[in-house]
Amino acid sequence: MEKKIINPWTWQDARSYVQSVEVKHVESTLYVSGQTAIDEHGISSDEHMRVQLQKTLENLEKVIREADFELKNIVRLNIYTTDSAALFENFDLFQEWINRNQIKQTSTVLEVQQLFENLKVELEATVVK
């Protein structure tokens, strides 16, 4: 087995996790840690759901592209939110992103009581190559 860790930033090191792990055998699979609306300095957003969802999608894209995978090859995308109603009010943003990138993924949407530092949405992905 061959593993490659991909971290486009350094702030996650203090939080004891990596942004993604690529595991190779015959094919390659990328497991992406939950991405949220955290900036490149590790500062969490306190904006409303739409802004947080946009930043979360941007961060997910950054990690996947940094690992040299394609968005269209996301096969699993889990969505965690503290407010399902607000998420679905802004779901057009998510659906437009899915359609634009030709993603055909399996998904689970879970409402949770709390996310890190009061964030509102988190996306966790598995990508194949």
Rank of each mutant, 00 (worst) to 15 (best):
100 R>I: 00
15 R>A: 10
18 V>F: 01
51 V>W: 12
28 S>V: 02
48 H>P: 02
32 V>F: 10
107 S>A: 11
12 Q>R: 12
28 S>F: 02
44 S>P: 13
88 F>Y: 13
68 D>S: 15
98 I>K: 07
57 L>E: 10
68 D>I: 03
4 K>I: 13
56 T>C: 12
113 Q>Y: 04
92 D>M: 09
1 M>F: 09
86 A>C: 04
128 V>Q: 01
64 I>F: 01
12 Q>P: 10
70 E>F: 05
78 N>P: 05
74 I>W: 01
60 L>W: 02
63 V>P: 00
41 H>I: 00
62 K>E: 02
99 N>Y: 09
10 T>N: 15
53 L>T: 11
7 N>L: 07
92 D>V: 08
57 L>P: 07
95 Q>R: 05
4 K>Y: 05
70 E>H: 09
25 H>Q: 13
72 K>M: 08
16 S>T: 06
50 R>K: 15
103 I>T: 04
75 V>Y: 00
22 E>P: 00
101 N>M: 02
80 Y>H: 12
126 T>V: 14
81 T>N: 06
111 E>A: 02
55 K>V: 08
24 K>G: 02
19 Q>C: 15
55 K>L: 12
28 S>G: 06
87 L>C: 08
93 L>W: 05
25 H>S: 14
61 E>A: 14
114 Q>Y: 02
48 H>L: 12
14 A>M: 11
7 N>C: 11
96 E>T: 08
27 E>S: 12
40 E>T: 01
89 E>D: 14
2 E>L: 10
36 T>F: 05
103 I>H: 01
100 R>L: 12
70 E>C: 08
77 L>W: 03
43 I>L: 09
49 M>E: 12
33 S>T: 09
18 V>H: 08
88 F>D: 02
57 L>Q: 12
103 I>S: 01
8 P>S: 10
109 V>F: 11
31 Y>G: 13
69 F>M: 08
107 S>R: 01
25 H>F: 07
23 V>P: 04
48 H>K: 14
49 M>V: 07
71 L>I: 04
34 G>V: 07
103 I>W: 05
94 F>M: 09
121 V>I: 10
70 E>R: 07
83 D>S: 14
86 A>R: 10
35 Q>P: 01
122 E>Q: 15
31 Y>N: 11
20 S>C: 15
46 D>Y: 04
125 A>S: 07
41 H>P: 00
66 E>F: 06
38 I>T: 15
99 N>L: 09
116 F>I: 05
94 F>H: 06
116 F>P: 08
100 R>N: 11
127 V>A: 03
120 K>V: 01
61 E>I: 06
86 A>E: 14
45 S>H: 05
53 L>V: 06
33 S>P: 04
108 T>V: 10
59 N>I: 00
56 T>W: 03
113 Q>W: 01
6 I>K: 05
43 I>N: 07
92 D>F: 13
6 I>C: 11
62 K>P: 00
14 A>Y: 02
82 T>M: 13
41 H>C: 05
85 A>W: 06
30 L>M: 04
101 N>H: 11
44 S>N: 12
13 D>V: 03
90 N>Q: 09
78 N>S: 15
56 T>G: 06
38 I>N: 12
10 T>S: 15
